[in-house]
Write a protein that binds this DNA or RNA. Sequence first.
DNA 1: CGAAATTTGACAAAATCTTGTCATATTGAC
DNA 2: GTCAATATGACAAGATTTTGTCAAATTTCG
Lengths: 167, 167
Amino acid sequence: MAKGPPAEPKSRLRRAYVGLVIEVFRLNGDQLAVGNALGADLGLTSARWQVLGAISLSPVPLPVAHIARNMGLARQAVQYSVDEMRADGLVRLEPNPHHKRAMLVAMTEKGEAAYREASERHGRWAETLMADLPPERIEAASELLREVQRRIARSTATPATTGIKET
Amino acid sequence: MAKGPPAEPKSRLRRAYVGLVIEVFRLNGDQLAVGNALGADLGLTSARWQVLGAISLSPVPLPVAHIARNMGLARQAVQYSVDEMRADGLVRLEPNPHHKRAMLVAMTEKGEAAYREASERHGRWAETLMADLPPERIEAASELLREVQRRIARSTATPATTGIKET
DNA sequence: CGAAATTTGACAAAATCTTGTCATATTGAC
DNA sequence: GTCAATATGACAAGATTTTGTCAAATTTCG
Protein backbone atom coordinates (compact mmCIF):
# COMPACT_ATOMS: atom_id res chain seq x y z
CA MET A 1 0.00 0.00 0.00
CA ALA A 2 1.95 3.02 1.26
CA LYS A 3 5.53 3.03 0.18
CA GLY A 4 7.10 2.57 3.61
CA PRO A 5 10.80 2.09 4.15
CA PRO A 6 12.34 -0.90 2.34
CA ALA A 7 13.43 -2.23 5.72
CA GLU A 8 16.14 -4.86 5.46
CA PRO A 9 16.29 -6.62 2.12
CA LYS A 10 16.57 -10.02 3.82
CA SER A 11 19.41 -11.95 2.32
CA ARG A 12 18.91 -14.67 -0.22
CA LEU A 13 20.36 -17.13 2.25
CA ARG A 14 17.83 -16.14 4.82
CA ARG A 15 14.90 -16.46 2.50
CA ALA A 16 16.20 -19.77 1.22
CA TYR A 17 16.60 -21.15 4.69
CA VAL A 18 13.21 -20.09 5.95
CA GLY A 19 11.71 -21.62 2.83
CA LEU A 20 13.49 -24.86 3.56
CA VAL A 21 12.18 -24.91 7.10
CA ILE A 22 8.62 -24.63 5.85
CA GLU A 23 9.06 -27.40 3.31
CA VAL A 24 10.53 -29.67 5.94
CA PHE A 25 7.56 -29.04 8.23
CA ARG A 26 5.11 -29.79 5.49
CA LEU A 27 6.83 -32.87 4.16
CA ASN A 28 7.22 -34.15 7.67
CA GLY A 29 3.47 -33.94 8.07
CA ASP A 30 2.90 -35.70 4.78
CA GLN A 31 5.26 -38.47 5.75
CA LEU A 32 3.57 -39.05 9.06
CA ALA A 33 0.25 -39.34 7.26
CA VAL A 34 1.68 -41.74 4.69
CA GLY A 35 3.31 -43.84 7.38
CA ASN A 36 0.15 -44.01 9.42
CA ALA A 37 -1.89 -44.97 6.39
CA LEU A 38 0.50 -47.63 5.15
CA GLY A 39 0.88 -49.24 8.56
CA ALA A 40 -2.61 -48.90 9.95
CA ASP A 41 -3.77 -52.45 9.35
CA LEU A 42 -0.46 -53.81 10.64
CA GLY A 43 -0.84 -52.14 14.00
CA LEU A 44 1.89 -49.66 13.15
CA THR A 45 1.90 -45.91 13.41
CA SER A 46 4.66 -43.60 12.24
CA ALA A 47 5.94 -43.33 15.81
CA ARG A 48 6.09 -47.10 16.24
CA TRP A 49 7.62 -47.56 12.83
CA GLN A 50 10.44 -45.22 13.76
CA VAL A 51 11.22 -47.24 16.84
CA LEU A 52 11.19 -50.50 14.94
CA GLY A 53 13.42 -48.88 12.35
CA ALA A 54 16.01 -48.07 14.97
CA ILE A 55 15.93 -51.64 16.21
CA SER A 56 16.17 -52.98 12.71
CA LEU A 57 19.09 -50.76 11.75
CA SER A 58 21.13 -51.71 14.76
CA PRO A 59 23.22 -54.87 14.61
CA VAL A 60 22.54 -55.48 18.31
CA PRO A 61 19.45 -54.98 20.49
CA LEU A 62 19.29 -51.58 22.20
CA PRO A 63 17.76 -50.19 25.39
CA VAL A 64 15.09 -47.51 25.15
CA ALA A 65 17.42 -44.61 25.84
CA HIS A 66 19.74 -45.63 23.02
CA ILE A 67 16.91 -45.93 20.55
CA ALA A 68 15.77 -42.46 21.49
CA ARG A 69 19.21 -41.00 20.99
CA ASN A 70 19.79 -42.77 17.70
CA MET A 71 16.57 -41.43 16.25
CA GLY A 72 16.63 -38.00 17.82
CA LEU A 73 13.44 -38.76 19.75
CA ALA A 74 12.53 -38.01 23.34
CA ARG A 75 13.33 -40.85 25.70
CA GLN A 76 9.87 -40.96 27.21
CA ALA A 77 8.12 -40.87 23.86
CA VAL A 78 10.06 -43.97 22.85
CA GLN A 79 9.28 -45.55 26.20
CA TYR A 80 5.61 -44.99 25.54
CA SER A 81 5.75 -46.57 22.09
CA VAL A 82 7.72 -49.52 23.41
CA ASP A 83 5.24 -50.11 26.22
CA GLU A 84 2.37 -50.04 23.76
CA MET A 85 4.06 -52.30 21.27
CA ARG A 86 4.97 -54.70 24.00
CA ALA A 87 1.34 -54.91 24.98
CA ASP A 88 0.56 -55.60 21.33
CA GLY A 89 3.21 -58.26 21.06
CA LEU A 90 5.33 -56.43 18.52
CA VAL A 91 8.42 -56.14 20.70
CA ARG A 92 9.81 -57.98 23.66
CA LEU A 93 12.30 -57.03 26.36
CA GLU A 94 15.41 -59.08 26.84
CA PRO A 95 17.74 -59.01 29.81
CA ASN A 96 20.77 -56.82 29.32
CA PRO A 97 23.99 -58.51 30.39
CA HIS A 98 25.57 -55.11 30.88
CA HIS A 99 22.84 -53.33 32.77
CA LYS A 100 20.38 -54.59 35.32
CA ARG A 101 17.62 -52.10 34.62
CA ALA A 102 18.11 -51.13 30.98
CA MET A 103 16.44 -54.05 29.24
CA LEU A 104 17.08 -54.57 25.55
CA VAL A 105 14.22 -54.05 23.12
CA ALA A 106 13.86 -56.71 20.45
CA MET A 107 11.23 -57.37 17.83
CA THR A 108 9.04 -60.42 18.16
CA GLU A 109 8.26 -62.54 15.13
CA LYS A 110 5.07 -60.58 14.79
CA GLY A 111 6.97 -57.32 15.02
CA GLU A 112 9.50 -58.43 12.43
CA ALA A 113 6.74 -59.42 10.07
CA ALA A 114 4.85 -56.18 10.51
CA TYR A 115 7.98 -54.10 10.06
CA ARG A 116 9.05 -56.07 6.99
CA GLU A 117 5.66 -55.71 5.38
CA ALA A 118 5.46 -52.00 6.18
CA SER A 119 8.92 -51.39 4.77
CA GLU A 120 8.06 -53.33 1.67
CA ARG A 121 4.89 -51.33 1.13
CA HIS A 122 6.68 -48.08 1.74
CA GLY A 123 9.43 -49.02 -0.67
CA ARG A 124 7.04 -50.01 -3.42
CA TRP A 125 4.99 -46.91 -2.83
CA ALA A 126 8.09 -44.72 -3.06
CA GLU A 127 9.35 -46.44 -6.17
CA THR A 128 6.08 -45.92 -7.94
CA LEU A 129 5.65 -42.38 -6.86
CA MET A 130 9.19 -41.13 -7.31
CA ALA A 131 9.93 -43.26 -10.36
CA ASP A 132 11.19 -40.51 -12.64
CA LEU A 133 12.96 -38.45 -9.99
CA PRO A 134 16.72 -38.72 -10.43
CA PRO A 135 18.10 -40.46 -7.33
CA GLU A 136 20.98 -38.00 -7.47
CA ARG A 137 18.64 -35.16 -6.70
CA ILE A 138 17.17 -37.00 -3.76
CA GLU A 139 20.59 -37.87 -2.46
CA ALA A 140 21.78 -34.30 -2.88
CA ALA A 141 18.82 -33.04 -0.89
CA SER A 142 19.45 -35.59 1.85
CA GLU A 143 23.05 -34.54 2.02
CA LEU A 144 22.08 -30.92 2.43
CA LEU A 145 19.61 -31.76 5.17
CA ARG A 146 22.36 -33.70 6.93
CA GLU A 147 24.71 -30.75 6.60
CA VAL A 148 22.13 -28.43 8.13
CA GLN A 149 21.66 -30.85 11.00
CA ARG A 150 25.40 -30.95 11.58
CA ARG A 151 25.45 -27.19 11.87
CA ILE A 152 22.51 -27.09 14.22
CA ALA A 153 24.08 -29.77 16.37
CA ARG A 154 27.31 -27.82 16.46
CA SER A 155 25.47 -24.68 17.51
CA THR A 156 23.56 -26.36 20.32
CA ALA A 157 26.85 -27.76 21.54
CA THR A 158 28.04 -24.14 21.79
CA PRO A 159 25.19 -22.45 23.62
CA ALA A 160 27.21 -19.25 23.75
CA THR A 161 26.22 -18.54 20.17
CA THR A 162 22.50 -19.07 20.34
CA GLY A 163 21.24 -19.99 23.74
CA ILE A 164 19.62 -23.15 22.44
CA LYS A 165 19.16 -25.60 25.26
CA GLU A 166 20.51 -29.13 25.11
CA THR A 167 18.15 -32.06 25.06
CA MET B 1 24.08 -64.57 11.11
CA ALA B 2 23.57 -67.39 8.57
CA LYS B 3 24.11 -66.28 5.00
CA GLY B 4 20.49 -66.27 3.90
CA PRO B 5 19.31 -65.32 0.40
CA PRO B 6 20.38 -61.88 -0.88
CA ALA B 7 16.71 -60.99 -1.09
CA GLU B 8 15.91 -58.00 -3.30
CA PRO B 9 18.79 -55.62 -3.94
CA LYS B 10 16.62 -52.59 -3.17
CA SER B 11 16.88 -49.97 -5.86
CA ARG B 12 18.98 -46.88 -5.50
CA LEU B 13 15.85 -44.78 -5.70
CA ARG B 14 14.34 -46.67 -2.86
CA ARG B 15 17.34 -46.33 -0.64
CA ALA B 16 17.64 -42.68 -1.53
CA TYR B 17 14.04 -41.99 -0.68
CA VAL B 18 14.04 -43.82 2.61
CA GLY B 19 17.19 -41.91 3.52
CA LEU B 20 15.46 -38.66 2.72
CA VAL B 21 12.51 -39.56 4.90
CA ILE B 22 14.79 -40.13 7.85
CA GLU B 23 16.62 -36.85 7.36
CA VAL B 24 13.34 -34.99 7.15
CA PHE B 25 12.18 -36.54 10.41
CA ARG B 26 15.39 -35.63 12.15
CA LEU B 27 15.64 -32.11 10.82
CA ASN B 28 12.00 -31.55 11.66
CA GLY B 29 12.79 -32.44 15.24
CA ASP B 30 15.77 -30.12 15.29
CA GLN B 31 13.71 -27.28 13.90
CA LEU B 32 11.01 -27.70 16.48
CA ALA B 33 13.64 -27.56 19.19
CA VAL B 34 15.25 -24.46 17.69
CA GLY B 35 11.89 -22.76 17.29
CA ASN B 36 10.89 -23.52 20.84
CA ALA B 37 14.20 -22.28 22.17
CA LEU B 38 14.22 -19.07 20.14
CA GLY B 39 10.66 -18.18 21.01
CA ALA B 40 10.44 -19.38 24.61
CA ASP B 41 10.80 -16.01 26.28
CA LEU B 42 8.38 -14.44 23.80
CA GLY B 43 5.57 -16.80 24.69
CA LEU B 44 5.95 -18.59 21.37
CA THR B 45 6.27 -22.27 20.64
CA SER B 46 6.90 -23.81 17.25
CA ALA B 47 3.22 -24.61 16.94
CA ARG B 48 2.20 -21.05 17.71
CA TRP B 49 4.85 -19.66 15.46
CA GLN B 50 3.50 -21.66 12.55
CA VAL B 51 0.04 -20.24 13.08
CA LEU B 52 1.34 -16.68 13.29
CA GLY B 53 3.36 -17.36 10.16
CA ALA B 54 0.24 -18.29 8.26
CA ILE B 55 -1.45 -15.10 9.42
CA SER B 56 1.57 -13.04 8.55
CA LEU B 57 1.93 -14.53 5.08
CA SER B 58 -1.67 -13.94 4.16
CA PRO B 59 -2.67 -10.53 2.80
CA VAL B 60 -6.04 -10.83 4.54
CA PRO B 61 -7.09 -12.24 7.93
CA LEU B 62 -8.12 -15.89 7.83
CA PRO B 63 -10.45 -18.14 9.82
CA VAL B 64 -9.00 -21.08 11.70
CA ALA B 65 -9.90 -23.67 9.11
CA HIS B 66 -8.09 -21.74 6.38
CA ILE B 67 -4.97 -21.36 8.45
CA ALA B 68 -4.96 -25.09 9.04
CA ARG B 69 -5.29 -25.87 5.38
CA ASN B 70 -2.65 -23.39 4.33
CA MET B 71 -0.11 -24.88 6.68
CA GLY B 72 -1.08 -28.51 6.33
CA LEU B 73 -2.07 -28.68 10.00
CA ALA B 74 -5.08 -30.26 11.65
CA ARG B 75 -7.96 -27.91 12.10
CA GLN B 76 -8.36 -28.62 15.79
CA ALA B 77 -4.67 -28.29 16.51
CA VAL B 78 -4.79 -24.79 15.07
CA GLN B 79 -7.94 -24.10 17.03
CA TYR B 80 -6.10 -25.12 20.18
CA SER B 81 -3.15 -22.84 19.47
CA VAL B 82 -5.44 -19.95 18.59
CA ASP B 83 -7.44 -20.37 21.81
CA GLU B 84 -4.24 -20.39 23.82
CA MET B 85 -2.76 -17.41 22.05
CA ARG B 86 -5.99 -15.52 22.43
CA ALA B 87 -5.83 -16.11 26.17
CA ASP B 88 -2.26 -14.82 26.05
CA GLY B 89 -3.23 -11.76 24.07
CA LEU B 90 -1.20 -12.66 21.00
CA VAL B 91 -4.13 -12.89 18.63
CA ARG B 92 -7.62 -11.51 18.48
CA LEU B 93 -10.78 -12.60 16.65
CA GLU B 94 -12.48 -10.24 14.28
CA PRO B 95 -15.96 -10.56 12.85
CA ASN B 96 -16.07 -12.11 9.41
CA PRO B 97 -18.29 -10.21 7.00
CA HIS B 98 -18.70 -13.35 4.94
CA HIS B 99 -19.39 -15.89 7.66
CA LYS B 100 -21.27 -15.55 10.92
CA ARG B 101 -19.38 -18.23 12.81
CA ALA B 102 -15.96 -18.35 11.22
CA MET B 103 -14.25 -15.43 12.92
CA LEU B 104 -11.05 -14.07 11.43
CA VAL B 105 -7.84 -14.49 13.36
CA ALA B 106 -5.63 -11.42 13.54
CA MET B 107 -2.48 -10.67 15.47
CA THR B 108 -2.59 -8.14 18.26
CA GLU B 109 0.17 -5.58 18.66
CA LYS B 110 1.75 -7.92 21.14
CA GLY B 111 1.47 -10.81 18.72
CA GLU B 112 2.97 -8.79 15.90
CA ALA B 113 5.87 -7.77 18.08
CA ALA B 114 6.54 -11.30 19.28
CA TYR B 115 6.36 -12.69 15.77
CA ARG B 116 8.60 -9.99 14.38
CA GLU B 117 11.20 -10.55 17.06
CA ALA B 118 11.09 -14.31 16.67
CA SER B 119 11.48 -14.05 12.92
CA GLU B 120 14.35 -11.67 13.33
CA ARG B 121 16.13 -13.98 15.74
CA HIS B 122 15.52 -16.95 13.53
CA GLY B 123 16.82 -15.10 10.51
CA ARG B 124 19.97 -13.95 12.23
CA TRP B 125 20.54 -17.38 13.66
CA ALA B 126 20.16 -18.95 10.23
CA GLU B 127 22.45 -16.42 8.59
CA THR B 128 25.18 -17.08 11.09
CA LEU B 129 24.86 -20.79 11.04
CA MET B 130 24.42 -21.33 7.32
CA ALA B 131 26.73 -18.51 6.27
CA ASP B 132 28.92 -20.49 3.90
CA LEU B 133 26.23 -22.77 2.49
CA PRO B 134 25.47 -21.83 -1.10
CA PRO B 135 21.88 -20.58 -1.23
CA GLU B 136 21.54 -22.48 -4.48
CA ARG B 137 21.95 -25.76 -2.68
CA ILE B 138 19.34 -24.82 -0.12
CA GLU B 139 16.95 -23.72 -2.82
CA ALA B 140 17.54 -26.89 -4.80
CA ALA B 141 16.76 -29.00 -1.75
CA SER B 142 13.58 -27.02 -1.08
CA GLU B 143 12.54 -27.50 -4.65
CA LEU B 144 13.01 -31.24 -4.37
CA LEU B 145 11.02 -31.37 -1.16
CA ARG B 146 8.25 -29.46 -2.86
CA GLU B 147 8.30 -31.86 -5.78
CA VAL B 148 8.01 -34.82 -3.43
CA GLN B 149 5.06 -33.16 -1.73
CA ARG B 150 3.38 -32.60 -5.07
CA ARG B 151 3.68 -36.28 -5.84
CA ILE B 152 2.38 -37.33 -2.46
CA ALA B 153 -0.55 -34.96 -2.81
CA ARG B 154 -1.30 -36.35 -6.24
CA SER B 155 -1.27 -39.88 -4.87
CA THR B 156 -3.59 -39.13 -1.99
CA ALA B 157 -5.93 -37.52 -4.45
CA THR B 158 -5.98 -40.85 -6.27
CA PRO B 159 -6.68 -43.31 -3.45
CA ALA B 160 -6.92 -46.13 -5.97
CA THR B 161 -3.13 -46.26 -6.11
CA THR B 162 -2.27 -46.31 -2.46
CA GLY B 163 -5.22 -46.28 -0.17
CA ILE B 164 -3.93 -43.22 1.65
CA LYS B 165 -6.78 -41.44 3.32
CA GLU B 166 -7.57 -37.82 2.74
CA THR B 167 -7.28 -35.31 5.53
C1' DC C 1 38.39 -48.74 46.41
C1' DG C 2 35.10 -44.59 46.97
C1' DA C 3 32.68 -40.37 45.79
C1' DA C 4 30.68 -37.65 42.20
C1' DA C 5 28.63 -37.43 37.82
C1' DT C 6 25.95 -39.61 34.36
C1' DT C 7 22.67 -42.85 32.46
C1' DT C 8 18.58 -45.21 32.74
C1' DG C 9 13.77 -46.58 33.44
C1' DA C 10 9.58 -45.82 36.46
C1' DC C 11 6.08 -42.84 37.50
C1' DA C 12 3.07 -38.99 37.34
C1' DA C 13 1.24 -34.51 35.98
C1' DA C 14 0.48 -31.45 32.46
C1' DA C 15 0.48 -29.99 27.76
C1' DT C 16 -0.64 -30.85 23.17
C1' DC C 17 -2.77 -33.20 19.43
C1' DT C 18 -6.23 -36.32 17.39
C1' DT C 19 -10.70 -38.09 16.52
C1' DG C 20 -15.47 -38.07 16.58
C1' DT C 21 -19.93 -35.79 17.05
C1' DC C 22 -22.88 -31.98 16.59
C1' DA C 23 -25.38 -27.67 15.29
C1' DT C 24 -25.06 -23.89 12.38
C1' DA C 25 -23.70 -21.51 8.10
C1' DT C 26 -22.62 -21.36 3.41
C1' DT C 27 -22.43 -22.99 -1.23
C1' DG C 28 -23.87 -25.37 -5.27
C1' DA C 29 -27.17 -27.92 -8.01
C1' DC C 30 -31.45 -28.01 -9.67
C1' DG D 1 -36.00 -20.52 -3.98
C1' DT D 2 -35.25 -25.18 -1.98
C1' DC D 3 -32.58 -28.97 -0.90
C1' DA D 4 -28.42 -31.62 -0.50
C1' DA D 5 -23.55 -31.30 0.12
C1' DT D 6 -19.92 -29.12 2.25
C1' DA D 7 -17.45 -26.03 5.53
C1' DT D 8 -16.91 -24.37 10.04
C1' DG D 9 -16.30 -23.92 14.98
C1' DA D 10 -17.77 -25.89 19.61
C1' DC D 11 -17.19 -29.54 22.50
C1' DA D 12 -15.60 -33.69 24.54
C1' DA D 13 -13.04 -38.02 24.98
C1' DG D 14 -8.84 -40.18 24.23
C1' DA D 15 -4.23 -40.71 22.60
C1' DT D 16 0.31 -39.15 22.49
C1' DT D 17 4.03 -36.30 23.86
C1' DT D 18 6.45 -33.44 27.07
C1' DT D 19 8.32 -32.24 31.42
C1' DG D 20 9.76 -33.12 36.04
C1' DT D 21 11.13 -36.04 39.80
C1' DC D 22 13.09 -40.03 41.62
C1' DA D 23 15.87 -44.12 42.73
C1' DA D 24 18.85 -47.58 40.99
C1' DA D 25 22.79 -48.78 38.10
C1' DT D 26 26.84 -47.59 35.80
C1' DT D 27 30.80 -44.99 34.66
C1' DT D 28 34.43 -41.72 35.56
C1' DC D 29 38.00 -39.94 38.13
C1' DG D 30 41.00 -39.48 41.78
